[in-house]
Amino acid sequence: MATTTPPTTETSSTAIVGHDDLYRQPTFLTSVVKSDTFRLFLALVALIVVFSVLKPTAFPTLSNTLNILSDAAILLVLAVGATFVIITAGIDLSVGGVLVFSSVVSAMVMAGIGDGTPLTLIIGLIVALVAGTLWGILNGFLVAKARIPALIVTLATMGASLGASLLITNGVDVRNVPFSLVEAVGSGTVAGIPVLALIALVVAVMFGIVLAQTRFGRYTYAIGSNAEALRRTGVNTTRHLIKVYALAGLLAGLAGYLSTARFATTTLGGHSTDNLATITAVVIGGASLFGGRGLMIGTIIGVFIPVVLQNGFVVLNISPYWQQIAVGAVLLGAVYLDQMRRRSRDR
């Protein structure tokens, strides 16, 4: 095709006129301002402004901001993995259970070594990451190879991972977590910013770049958009899907480690709604449950909207139960918008 001579006859009947109109790219600024993600960002800013105006002494303070960042960190790590999974048109309900499992095994290993040296902390991290990844690979294998719907697979592994955690621990939280871990990671700060938040941000930026710039990201979108089309080009879609679920497991493992560090204990009963919180954040962020659409920046904003709502309601002394209702409403709005978009597009 490289040696093609351009068509000499100008018989085209396409309704485009001037040469300048061909391949007109919208400028960067207009495409940003017009994007749904930008509107979402404005909504987050509006929330922050409203809470700040209503409670100027308590909401827009440094300590409260750091609170919000710490609250959002673990959810963000989970949501980064869920963004990939949801873009493939999949779902991962198991993240909370996998988080707890990874937290338990890594805490037990660290407690078993007992010395709390940096090496021990690193071993604990590796154990958590490996444990999470193994659950993720199992999820991916069952979804991609055994062709069991992701909803069912991850519902099963959610129960299995949590049950395994309870079996290993006899239902009692592992509390003798190395204090050095809590000090360095859980409540540590670098330049005033919580280490937890920094780790989460690094993870989000790194995998945001992977999603947007690499072939791994491209295939993730393509699978969610039209898996058969990708398969016909000779790409091993099964293997890619397993990798995506493995990534979600890996990040759930990391989240488990961060959770141990933050709470100085495993939190066996504390993560039963993490999966829903994660999916909510990703969907508010603009990813489509039907696959093919989603941006990491949207997920980051989508994580902060529920967290800011929760925090703002607490600061304003409104019952935090209202937060659940508000987040539910935002979620419905986000999915409704996605549906409208699809309908107008598939016409």
Binding site: Y221, A222, G224, N226, T233
Partner: peptide
């Protein structure tokens, strides 16, 4: 057609 509808034309031309 075997196109990925969410990707732009260039991405589809180079798919795989």
């Amino acid at each position: 057609l075997a196109l990925a509808p969410d990707l732009d034309p260039a991405s589809n031309l180079y798919l795989g």
